[in-house]
Amino acid sequence: MKKLSVLFAAVIMVVSVGMAKAQKIATVDVMGVLNAMPEKKKADADIKTFLDSKQAEIKKKADAGQAKLKQYSEEAPKKTADENKARETELQKLQEEIAQMQDKAQKDLQAKQDVAFGPIEKKLNDAIEKVAKANGYEFIMDANSAAFVYKSGADATAAVKKELGIN
């Protein structure tokens, strides 16, 4: 029975190695291709501009809050307890507004990235699929993947870049 198990395991290994060799596998440097695409470069610039403007708005509001805090701290000994309490409430409200602005900016940024990068990703995937079909590849994997242990197959990066019309 033990010999039968060993024989069965050996047969399975031989068959699986034979099947693996029959498959055509290629890799593609996805990040390299994406970074070479003019659409991605423009989207990155647009996203950076958007992010910079949101950060400037938040900084302006935060600076105004810091100025008020400094002013209120200096004037606190001269004010009544009720006035100081009202000022404290005002500062807390301002702090909450800044936090809401940051949350909204993060959500807006994510939405803008989704809208900007969706078509770019689709274009890349379509080009990869076209190259795979044209060259008979059954699998194309990302060359930058941490899951790679060994790479020794066709590299489809050049073909994908050619399909997209980039160098």
Score class of each variant (00 low, 15 high):
K68V: 00
Q113M: 12
E83K: 15
Q66I: 09
E75H: 10
E129G: 14
A81M: 13
E88P: 07
Q113S: 08
Q71K: 15
V131I: 01
Y72M: 08
K70N: 12
A86Y: 07
F117C: 02
E96G: 12
D108K: 03
L94M: 14
E97N: 13
A105T: 05
F117K: 02
D103L: 10
A67P: 11
Q106L: 10
L124M: 07
D82K: 02
E83D: 14
M101V: 01
L69Q: 12
A86G: 04
E97P: 07
K68S: 06
N84C: 11
E88N: 12
E121F: 12
Q113T: 00
S73N: 15
E90L: 00
A116N: 05
T80D: 07
I120E: 00
P77H: 02
Q66T: 10
L91E: 07
F117M: 05
E90F: 05
Q106C: 05
Q100Y: 11
D82I: 02
K133G: 13
K85M: 02
R87I: 01
I120M: 04
Y72R: 09
T89K: 15
K79I: 09
K79Y: 14
G118C: 05
L109P: 03
K93S: 13
D114V: 04
A134H: 01
D103V: 07
D114Q: 15
E129L: 15
